[in-house]
């Protein structure tokens, strides 16, 4: 999350993919960085033990959210 905020501060459109169990942490980091409403993509936890097929499905989900955020700044994570 911090790295996306760093890119954003450098003027580059950015977002982050977060697993759902880390959402409060991502929001807290955005808040201390002065971007409390910063949008990011959320996928189900975990990643480390997933099969190839599950990773593909999570990637489809993540890309859909990331593209929406990068183009309009909207988040599906808040929905």
């Amino acid at each position: 999350m911090h790295d996306a905020l760093t890119a954003e501060k450098a003027g580059v459109a950015a977002t982050a993919i977060i697993t759902d169990r880390f959402v409060p942490t991502a929001k807290a980091m955005a808040t201390v960085q002065g971007m409390s409403d910063y949008p990011f993509a959320v996928i189900p936890h975990p990643i480390a033990s997933n099969s190839e097929q599950t990773l593909h499905e999570k990637a489809v989900d993540a890309v859909q959210q990331c593209v929406a955020i990068l183009l309009q700044g909207e988040t599906q994570a808040d929905a």
Binding site: F22, P24, T25, K27, A28, M29, T31, V32
Partner: peptide, 11 residues
Amino acid sequence: VLGCVPGQLDR
């Protein structure tokens, strides 16, 4: 001061 709250920045 640093927000190390369990569930937030303390994971």
